[in-house]
Nucleic acid binder design. Structure first.
Lengths: 246, 246
DNA sequence: CGAGCACTTGATCGCTTTCAATAGCTGTGG
DNA sequence: CCACAGCTATTGAAAGCGATCAAGTGCTCG
C-alpha cells in the first residue's frame, strides 16, 4: 500500500485554513506561503521525524493524527503531544528535532521549508502572532496534562483522556446532544498508556471497569459511547462541567 | 515584616535585561516599556495570582522564585511551572488566570498593565518575537517534565530535579568546575513533591537514599553538593552528560 | 521553655506493575 | 476452507513501589 498522493490544495479550499498557523494571513500573505508550501503524505505507523534528526521543514497537519513522544534509553516512552489537523510541527529557530513524531493514522502534512518560513515569520507578523497563540495553547494543554500525569489515579487518567477526546470531537461537530456522545478512539491501548504514563494492561483494566460501571459503553475496541458526560467528567476528577459546557 | 519596597530601576541597569521579554528591544522600545512598567514586591509565601482571578497585568520576575500550581477540589496539587528571574508571568489575550502563582521566596516583579502591553505587542515585533521564543522554551521544559512525571521512578524524579536546578545554577555562574557542584535548593520538600508528583515523605526518603549512596551530600536541609555530576545524571535516567556538558 | 514548622524515619496498605496465559481479529498460504 | 502467524486487547495472580498513617527529631522564634 502506498501513502496517498496529494497534488496541491488551494489555500482558500484548505480544511484547516481558519485554525492553522496561517489562520490570520491576508490573501497576499497566503500567496507567499503558497509559493513555498508542499504536501507530504504518511501511512499509519510511519515516522515523520526522529528525535535528533535535522529538520529542514516545518508544517501543519492537514488530516490524520500524529504523536509526539520522548523515549528513554531503556525503552520507556512518554507521549508529550497529540497532533491533530491544524496543529503545527517543528520549531522555527531550531535545527534538530527534540521529539519523535509518528503518524498514527494516514496523514497529510502541509510543509514549508524551514529557511523561507523563518524569513516569512520576520516579515509577516500575522504568522508569528498566530504561532505564539498556538504555542500558548499547547503550553496550557501540556500543563493540564502535567496534573493528570502527576496527581491522578489510573481511572481518573483514563476518564480525563476520554473527556479530552470527546470534547475535541464535540468542537468539530457542534450542535450535537450535550449529554450523550459517541466517538472513535484514535489511539491503541498502548498509545493511551504512553499518553497517560501507565501500562497497557492498566489501561485495559480501567477501560473495562468504566464499562462495567456504565460510565462508557464500547462497540468493538475503538468506538466509545458516553451516556452521560457529566458522569465522565466527575470520574476524571475535574470540576464537573468545568470548561466543557461553558 | 513588610515586602521590600522598590522605587524604579532603570532598564539599562536591570539584572534581567538580556533574558526577559524585553531582551530584544531597542532603546526607544525600552523607553516605551519603561513608561508603562511598575514594580511590585511580594513576601515569601504570598500569593501573586489566584487561579480564576482577573489579571490586569503581566510581567517579569526580576528577583526571587515563584511557582505555578494547579489544584484539584480535594486538594491534590501539581506544580506546572517554576518561575525564575527573567521568566514571564501572564498570558496576553487572556483575562482570567489559569494557575495559582505563589512567591516561594521574597520576590520582585516588573509589571506592565495588560492593555498597554498588548497594544505594544502589536506595534513592537521584538517583544512578540521574544515572547514566542520564551514560550517555546517553556513548552520544551513542560514536555521534558511530562517524561519525568509519567515514566520515571521516585529516585529518578529526585535526581532529575536536582540535575535541573544544578544545571540552571551552572548557567548563572559559568566557568566553575564541571564535576563537583554545590547549590541551594529553592524549594521545600513539599514543593519538590508537588513538582514531582510525589508525597513529601517519599521525597525525603529518596533524598536520604541518594545521600547514603554518595550521589549527593547535604549541608543542613537545603544546601546540596553533587560530587560527580555524571553520576547524578545517570541516576536521573538521562543520557549521561546529555545536554549538560555539550 | 514551649509552640510551630520543616523534615526524617518506621510500619503497613493498596494501587499499579509485572509476568503470564488467553481471547479475538486479520491476513496468508496450504 | 481451515490452520496458523501476528497483532491487539483482555484477564488473572503475584510482586513491588510509593502512599498513607504515625511518631519522632531538630530548628527557629516568641
Amino acid at each position: 500500500m502506498n501513502a496517498p498522493t496529494i497534488s496541491h490544495i488551494n489555500c482558500a479550499d484548505c480544511p484547516i485554513r481558519h485554525r492553522a498557523v496561517c489562520a490570520r494571513c491576508e490573501s497576499d500573505e497566503l500567496a507567499a506561503l503558497d509559493s513555498i508550501k508542499y504536501y507530504r503524505s504518511y501511512e499509519a505507523g510511519q515516522p515523520i521525524i526522529w528525535s535528533g534528526d535535522q529538520m529542514n521543514f516545518v508544517g501543519s497537519v492537514v488530516s490524520g493524527i500524529a504523536t509526539l513522544t520522548q523515549t528513554m534509553e531503556d525503552g520507556r516512552t512518554q507521549m508529550v503531544g497529540l497532533l491533530l489537523p491544524s496543529d503545527f510541527v517543528g520549531r522555527p529557530g531550531r535545527d534538530g528535532a527534540a521529539y519523535n513524531v509518528v503518524a498514527t493514522t494516514d496523514l497529510v502534512m502541509c510543509c514549508f521549508r524551514k529557511k523561507p518560513f523563518e524569513e516569512m515569520m520576520v516579515t509577516t507578523p500575522h504568522i508569528a502572532h498566530r504561532l505564539l497563540e498556538m504555542t500558548l495553547d499547547e503550553l496550557d494543554a501540556a500543563r493540564e496534562w502535567m496534573l493528570v500525569l502527576g496527581r491522578k489515579t489510573a481511572r481518573e487518567k483514563i476518564a480525563s483522556l476520554l473527556a479530552i477526546i470527546a470534547r475535541r470531537d464535540a468542537s468539530l461537530t457542534p450542535g450535537g446532544a450535550v449529554n450523550e456522545m459517541t466517538f472513535d478512539l484514535p489511539l491503541t491501548r498502548e498509545a493511551m498508556a504512553d499518553y497517560l504514563g501507565l501500562t497497557l494492561e492498566t489501561v485495559s483494566r480501567q477501560m473495562s471497569a468504566l464499562k462495567k460501571d456504565g460510565v462508557i459503553a464500547l462497540e468493538g475496541k475503538r468506538r466509545v459511547t458516553v451516556p452521560d458526560m457529566g458522569n465522565l467528567l466527575e470520574e476524571a476528577g475535574d470540576d464537573s462541567d468545568g470548561g466543557f459546557l461553558m
